[in-house]
């Protein structure tokens, strides 16, 4: 297995199965044994060209809790991009100041481009609708944590599967494992053909549904995502689907005991707040795990663990 030291993580496909498992193992260790001085003297450039709450704060907290420092910005409008500077120039310069960069950018491919502009490792915190590999790693970590394994599980991916980058990356990452996938979405928002083709090529079994009720009792993980109104050309259709794609507490009466509900958050109305207190809710733990996975990733690309 190649070392992650010095490497950028732009796409989940940049990582082999062994490398993914290695990051998850390091996150496990950091969750149990914090390392508050591991990255002393090192600086993270937190370059968020578009707003983010969980991803940015968890990257920054991850660096701080390992003893490193953080510089950066939370809005592209305050950078030289507003003066017309290219992203390439910005990242090349920032790379001369810091040891590692976490970034989010509204344009697809921006993180790959940034990784070519600087020789410092770039961790992609989301590039448009393209990739968000740290979300995928924390999702895998969370699945393994709450079920004790990944292989052999029935996993439902639910909601906007057409445009949702988290579900695309998670499905791609799960091709490394022996799982059965269940895709639940309105017809117009089903998983794109190219992902289904990748799954077929990898020999992953998957099934397609248009109602949550058809599958909720048959799965170990129910990974729910938000359906975004702006994706719908017809707002009436959105209003209808929004109300159909809503997970309510009463739908959990016959589910498997070990079922865990995950959600990349933020939620709007697709996930009933009454579920929060049930043993099936695991989305807040999922969000917290982002911290340990990002610690593991930052420390790995800096060659410190």
């Amino acid at each position: 297995m190649a070392s992650l030291a010095g490497r950028s993580i732009v796409s989940i496909k940049d990582l082999s199965k062994e490398e993914i498992l290695s990051v998850l193992g390091k996150a496990d260790r950091l969750k149990i044994n914090p390392e508050p001085r591991l990255l002393e003297g090192m600086v993270l450039g937190s370059c968020f060209f578009e707003p983010s709450t969980r991803t940015r704060l968890s990257f920054e907290t991850a660096m701080s809790k390992l003893g490193g420092k953080v510089v950066g910005f939370a809005d592209g409008a305050v950078t030289s991009a507003k003066k017309g500077e290219t992203m390439w120039d910005s990242m090349r310069i920032i790379g001369q100041y810091v040891d590692v960069i976490a970034m989010r950018h509204p344009l697809e491919g921006a993180a790959r481009r940034a990784s070519e502009a600087t020789n410092k490792p770039v961790l992609n915190g989301g590039d448009g609708a393209n990739q968000h590999p740290t979300q995928t790693l924390l999702d895998l970590f969370t699945i393994r944590e709450c079920q004790g394994r990944i292989d052999g599980l029935d996993i439902a991916l639910v909601g906007d599967l057409k445009y949702g980058r988290t579900t695309h990356s998670l499905a791609q990452a799960l091709t490394h494992f022996n799982v059965r996938l269940h895709f639940v979405a309105p017809d117009s928002l089903q998983m794109p053909d190219y992902i289904c083709e990748e799954l077929k090529n990898a020999g992953v079994e998957f099934h397609i549904y248009d109602k949550m009720e058809d599958v909720i009792n048959e799965v170990d993980i129910f990974y729910l995502t938000r359906i975004q109104g702006e994706r719908f050309p017809d707002q009436m259709e959105y209003e209808r689907i929004k109300n159909v794609f809503r997970l309510k507490k009463e739908m959990l009466s016959d589910v498997r005991n070990n079922l865990k509900i995950m959600h990349p958050l933020p939620r709007v109305n697709e996930l009933d707040e009454k579920i929060d207190d049930t043993s099936h809710a695991y989305y807040f733990e999922e969000a917290q795990n982002g911290l340990f996975v990002r610690q593991a990733l930052i420390a790995s690309v800096l060659g410190k663990i």
Binding site: L107, E108, G128
Partner: peptide, 12 residues
């Protein structure tokens, strides 16, 4: 062809 691709916004 992707209008949101970085290559359509910077000289790449």
């Amino acid at each position: 062809p992707n209008p949101k691709c970085i290559t359509n916004h910077e000289a790449i």
